[in-house]
């Protein structure tokens, strides 16, 4: 049974080179966290997560809600094992799959088929698994003979279709999703929705970071409201979304 447990997990995010362009770093990385200077090293440190205690069970569909920089993406990266908690304890049972940014490790000189092989391998698929799924990925991406051409010749929409088809071909146990921009056309968005639904159905646990109320209502059965790296509320989706809107209106004078 898949499960995730966090016991007062905290993460201090060190920022280097902050002396030179402090403001820029601040804007891009951490508009929400508590910024301070580390006593020992003198580096700027952002407290990105602070005392998070959550327990996520098999079958949970968790939505992460919060302002920009509230710690949503950082929490996803901690769950994925990319960042290591500075304090606290994190126990993950189950295989984790994360879909964060658009195709890391993408070489635009590779052909579509090579990209399927490379990205599939980064996704953790075995050689046979990739071979088995290539046809299905090719079909979903509707790229046809373009798959034999270098990816750099694709339009951005075509590239999104391909990356999307590859990424959603996995069989995840714990699925971490970060919402972002999509570039598919209207018809593709419709098909993409169905494919993501299928993907989520295959997973035992979903953790989704999103700003969209509708998306969270649709896909999640629980939600966490993050603010300044802390979990303010953890509970039923409607309750948490209501609290989020209160928080937003409080912030406005």
């Amino acid at each position: 049974m898949a499960s995730i447990e966090l016991h007062s997990v905290g993460l201090d995010y060190p920022i280097y080179g902050a002396q030179r362009s402090f403001r820029k770093e601040l804007l891009t990385r951490a508009t929400g966290g508590l910024i301070r200077r580390d006593k020992d090293s003198g580096h700027v440190v952002v407290r990105a997560l602070d005392g998070l205690t959550l327990s996520i069970e098999h079958g949970d569909r968790i939505g992460l809600i919060g302002h920009n920089g509230a710690g949503k993406s950082t929490l996803l990266k901690v769950l994925a094992g990319i960042y290591h908690p500075t304090v606290g304890r994190l126990v993950v049972n189950g295989r984790i799959s994360s879909l964060f940014s658009i195709s890391p490790g993408l070489d635009t000189d590779d052909t579509g088929y090579e990209t399927i092989r490379n990205c599939g391998m980064f996704l953790g698929m075995s050689g046979t698994e990739i071979r088995d799924k290539t046809d299905e990925i090719a079909q979903f991406s509707e790229l046809g003979e373009f798959l034999s051409l270098p990816v750099r010749t694709y339009s951005s929409g075509m590239l999104v279709r391909l990356s999307f088809a590859i990424a959603t071909a996995i069989d995840p146990e714990i699925l971490l999703l970060d919402e972002g921009l999509g570039a598919g056309d209207a018809r593709f968005a419709e098909r993409a929705k169905k494919r993501v639904d299928d993907l989520v159905d295959r997973a035992s646990i979903l953790v989704l970071a999103s700003h969209s109320d509708a998306l969270i209502r649709n896909m999640c059965n629980k939600a966490v409201l993050l603010h300044g790296g802390k979990a303010l509320v953890y509970g039923p989706v409607d309750e948490v979304i209501a609290r989020y809107h209160e928080l937003t209106s409080e912030a406005k004078p």
Partner: peptide, 13 residues
């Protein structure tokens, strides 16, 4: 909001 972002993922034990 359009489709979810996609990208790569990796599976671990």
């Amino acid at each position: 909001t359009p489709a979810l972002v996609v990208g790569t993922s990796i599976i671990r034990d």
